[in-house]
């Protein structure tokens, strides 16, 4: 029996969003306090999931079904309204490639900055820098250049390389593999496999069923903030496809 690394129980997440009628102070004052400026929007409505150690878990669902919200809550970025999350180990969230990259700074400066923000110490930052130099295939001259002069693919290479530099206990991937040219995409897939082999659990979000079936063994499908189905990847993928027919 494999041990559970992530246990989510009855998770609810609400967002406060601006009431459509109230967008500025003027509207707020004009409403004489009769209308609350914010309204609650329920995103996740009672999600429960168990993810085992070493498992590669696919998360499917239509746009807006709450996949990214669930991943962000797992990563500790969003505070749940109620419910419990138990995580064992270090999570590396790869929620969007290139987030946090400052276009005005050089590639090297960005590696240092993002690695620091990810909580690395100076030794780990050095290792990350060496890793990125090799993995991204960007030359030293490229890395000394301001990122705003990079092509979109080069920026993606930089972002991806930084996020996979350190092998985490749990890797969260949100549609991240569609970056770079074919050569780099293969390299990314290879690196994900490497991370997987090291015993790390992976939660994978993608709309490409081929990719999901290749990498994952189990999965779940979110419908309107609730888990509609959990099970082996083929079953869940079939269910997900049936949503569109």
């Amino acid at each position: 029996m494999q041990s559970t690394v992530i246990k989510i129980e009855n998770l609810y997440v609400d967002f406060y969003i601006q009431n459509q009628r109230i967008n500025s102070f003027k509207d707020l004052i004009m409403s004489f306090g009769m209308v609350s400026p914010f309204e609650k929007k329920k995103i996740l409505k009672g999600v429960s999931l168990d993810i085992k150690k070493g498992e590669c878990f696919a998360l499917m669902g239509k746009n807006g079904s709450g996949k990214s919200t669930l991943l962000r809550t797992l990563a500790g970025i969003i505070t749940p309204s109620s419910g419990a999350i138990k995580v064992e180990g270090r999570i590396a969230p790869m929620l969007s490639i290139g987030a946090g990259i400052e276009l005005e700074l050089s590639g090297y400066d960005n590696i240092k900055l993002i690695a620091t923000l990810m909580g690395m110490n100076s030794k780990e930052i050095k290792e990350t820098t060496t890793f990125v130099e090799q993995f991204s295939e960007l030359s030293k001259a490229d890395l000394n250049m301001q990122v705003k002069r990079y092509s979109a693919g080069m920026t993606a290479r930089l972002g991806f390389s930084i996020s996979v530099a350190k092998t985490p206990d749990i890797l969260i991937v949100d549609e991240a593999l569609s970056v770079g040219d074919i050569g780099f995409q293969e390299k990314c897939a290879h690196r994900i496999n490497e991370i997987k082999k090291s015993g790390c659990s992976i939660i994978y979000v993608s709309h490409s069923l081929v990719e999901l079936k290749r990498i994952c063994t189990h999965g779940a499908c979110l419908v309107d903030g609730k888990i509609a189905l959990t099970g082996p990847i083929d079953e869940v993928a079939a269910y997900y496809e049936s949503l569109f027919h």
Partner: peptide
Amino acid sequence: ASVLKTIAI
């Protein structure tokens, strides 16, 4: 915002 949405700090 983009950093705060992707890294738990």
